[in-house]
Design a protein around this nucleic acid. Structure first.
Lengths: 252, 252
DNA sequence: CGAAAACTTGACCCAACTCAACGAACGTGG
DNA sequence: CCACGTTCGTTGAGTTGGGTCAAGTTTTCG
């Protein structure tokens, strides 16, 4: 299981972003039983209305997202997840999934038994604390998204989304130098922002025209990061980062 | 402190809505040290950017809400809270408040030291479980709000909001018979739904015109509850209610 | 009883949506 | 390695849901 120990190291790193973990806590987490799994884009990892899976998924590679559908079939994307993140904390203690979780790209997952995580939380307050913090930070992010979707116009909204993603990608060290690859179609971005894909397209071009953004394919670069942040009304407060990051001023 | 023991009984009842609590857990909660406080409408209980208060507030009477402001000064209401609910769980383990909490009406509060709650959670897994469940259910509600604001039109959105509120009021037993009193101005409803007060007004009248709603002052009655639910695209799944409520079919 | 806050209503406007067509990129199988 | 279907992105033209502004009217409350 050596490989899997390494696997969960990404989770430890991620948890440390929001809470301290001592040596033993880290050890205990990496020692959790885990098996690997690969899944294709758009595979469902959790389905609304069903009991949550008995095994929690930790993203080792690729991206995933949460989603709900309205009665009319329109979709709202609720969050996007990066490598290192656990996908099931929001359902860890609930009996019924209230939303869907899907792979965005092809994903590499580590599967950890739900019971093992819950037990570890009882045994180790530090682990409990870290998991709870992660739950709370995710809740904080969805509050910010609610503000974003409810009260900001398309340009600000999109810019805000790009800032958040840039920062999170940066923190996970996923980025290639000089920018990052958006793993989403414009339709998916629209579903995350409460916009149509057509309007996302136009708004991207507006930002591009203003010089706040350069694109080639899905690769985006931000030539004026600080100005973009200003336009986006972006403050990283809601991400509750433990160590105030230099990353707040990435030089793209 | 007998009065205060009684006070926290409301919290126990509320926590039981989403998780089981054994006798000792309940005892332990009601035995928490608590002091009472009354606050005027619009008083701030938590301020964004500041460390969370050392004492958690439990709503004994009246209503409260969470809120964030955009850089342009527009406001998004993130949630509304009823008597019996604890207001600080979302910040219980975080170092910095990411949103504001305000009294909606005049409120009666019980103040419980943060540390005492955290300690009780370590000592009693049942209590920890209940508190975590409440955190997760609140997160689930904000996901549903995100769907509501992002993807539903004004009529559906407003109807959904009214359904949720009706149901929660019903569960807390706050309702007077035959309907309930909305403790919010139309402007506040707008800020919760990402609409303007003018459009809330018009949309209320549309629902009224359709016979889905009757109003006098802020008192609302639903003559066709089932039909309203259908129009609202409302399913109570996301509220994660422990005991599938008759309340789902209140006869107003 | 009077002032302030909340609610209504009308006229007009615009940000974002819809529909539709086309071009570019991409994966797949022959 | 190319042909080709499919998904994704781009663009234009026209529409509309909800916003803005502004002027009453009603309710609330000191």
């Amino acid at each position: 299981m050596t490989t899997d120990r390494d696997a969960l190291a990404a989770l430890v790193t991620n948890l440390k972003t929001h809470a301290p973990l001592d040596r033993d806590d880290c050890e205990a987490i990496t020692a959790l039983p885990a098996t690997r799994r690969t899944m294709e884009p758009l595979s469902y990892l959790v389905r609304e209305g069903e009991p949550p899976p008995t095994h929690c998924s930790v993203l080792l590679g690729g991206f995933a997202f949460r989603q709900k559908l309205s009665g009319e079939g329109t979709r709202q994307i609720l969050s996007v997840h990066l490598p290192g993140e656990a996908l099931d904390f929001q359902l860890l203690f609930l009996d019924c999934a209230d939303h869907n979780v899907q792979a965005l790209t092809r994903v590499e997952l580590a599967n950890v038994p739900r019971a093992a995580i819950r037990q570890l939380m009882e045994e180790r307050p530090g682990v409990a604390r870290a998991v709870i913090n992660k739950m709370l930070v995710e809740a904080s992010i969805s509050r910010e998204w609610l503000l974003n979707v409810g009260r900001r116009d398309a340009r600000t909204r999109l810019a805000h989304f790009l800032c958040e993603f840039a920062l999170r990608v940066d923190l996970q060290g996923v980025k290639g130098n000089g920018g990052y690859e958006l793993p989403m179609t414009q339709e998916q971005i629209g579903d995350a922002l409460g916009l149509t894909s057509v309007h996302v397209n136009r708004t991207l071009r507006v930002l591009e025209g203003e010089g706040l953004l350069r694109r080639s394919g899905r690769k985006v670069v931000f030539p004026q990061w600080q100005e973009l942040r200003r336009v986006a009304d972006f403050s990283a407060l809601y991400l509750h980062l433990a160590n105030p990051p230099l990353a707040l001023q990435p030089v793209y």
